[in-house]
Simulated scan of single mutants.
Amino acid sequence: MKEDFYEILGVSKSASAAEIKKAYRKKALQYHPDKNPGDAKAEEMFKKSAEAYEVLSDPNKKAKYDQFGHAAFEGGGFGGGGMNMDDIFSQFGDIFGSAFGGGGFSGFGGFGGGGQRRVKGSNLRIRVKLTLEEIANGVEKKVKVRRKIQAEGVTYKTCTTCNGRGQVTKVQNTILGRMQTAATCSVCGGSGQILDGKPGDADAQGLKVSEETVSINIPAGVEEGMQLKVPGKGNDAPGNGIPGDLLVAIETQEHETLKREGDNLHYDLYISISDAILGTSKEIDAVGGKVRIKLEPGIQSGKILRLRGKGVSSLNGYGSGDLLVHVNVWTPKELNKEQKDFFERMQGNENFEPKPEKSDKSFFEKVKDMFS
């Protein structure tokens, strides 16, 4: 079971944003890898603290965490968890200030300790279309992606413009005195390295295009327009850089008979007058296959039957929605003489006179119940 984020940082749920930031900085400096070389436990605590801060420092993520706990971020690609050292220093490096030479540390990026910055490759974006069955149960998709990778035989050397630091320092005279500023090196793009040699199939950055099959685990309950992230499956970065990410946009295919509303599904069932009077059983569509339902004699048009747990699995892992079956009694537009004679005889018959009971809800009450 994952540890509570508030306990990791040592703050209460009512802590302010400033208190949360202060607590994280204290933990990060305590467990910083430069201060604890070779200490796997300290590195793990360093990552846990960053993961906790990533959620609690974001008002939207914090609100979800306060309501649902760790379940709010399960399923992959929706924030929280799985941070590596490069993620931590690219997002929160400013918090360390000058405690470690500007935020980075040897071997993991940043500009600290004379180390060079690790540039991240560009992200790739694809769209994946899912059926309602795949959305309801979750699915693993394998897609072919054309991404840039570092070509074999490529060699790099230290950039002479920035001396491998990835940034250049400029000193300017202003009315306030001499001001020093740092900017990304325009020659190496911030990587601290430039191309030294490359094979013929590589581009000017030492990269080549390669097709790769990527496996994407899509959790149940995703919706149209959501975006998942597959770390490290974007384009490679030149030199000793960090690969970009693969961003997966979700598209949904419309089902022939089922309509989705949140975690619930809706099905329109049309029955004849005779079926409504006598009662019957019908086979209908559901995401797990066909299901058979029983209709009691005298069922009314507009009746809603609820099949619990037959909807879409919740994205947050809190069970599944329901399948709501809307019963519609279909009235024939044309009758033969025998049928017409029968219904003419039934006009005025006491059994055919409408006698709604108190338990028979009006249309507006049904709509209210459906959305409550």
Rank of each mutant, 00 (worst) to 15 (best):
E353L: 13
L246D: 06
E211C: 04
F363R: 12
G97V: 01
F111Q: 05
K27Q: 08
Q205H: 13
P37K: 00
D94K: 15
N60W: 11
R306H: 01
S57R: 12
V325I: 14
D4Q: 04
D201I: 06
S301W: 06
V327N: 00
N137W: 08
A17V: 01
L258Y: 01
V119R: 12
L246Q: 06
I149D: 09
T280C: 05
A136H: 00
G244D: 00
Y31R: 03
K48P: 04
I216H: 13
P243T: 02
S98T: 06
G112C: 04
A182H: 11
G93V: 01
G153R: 07
S274G: 10
E350G: 07
K64D: 13
G153H: 03
G244E: 01
I8P: 08
I216W: 01
C185M: 00
P59T: 02
M179N: 12
K233I: 09
K303T: 15
G348L: 04
C159T: 00
G288T: 12
P219D: 02
D263P: 09
S274D: 13
P199S: 03
L265R: 02
K144E: 09
S210Y: 15
I284G: 08
V171T: 15
F46G: 01
G80I: 08
G279D: 08
V55C: 04
V222A: 08
C188H: 07
E296I: 07
K198I: 01
E74A: 15
I273K: 08
I242S: 12
M1Q: 05
R308M: 11
A136M: 02
V209L: 07
K358M: 06
E74V: 08
N217T: 14
A63I: 01
T131Q: 02
I135A: 09
A220N: 06
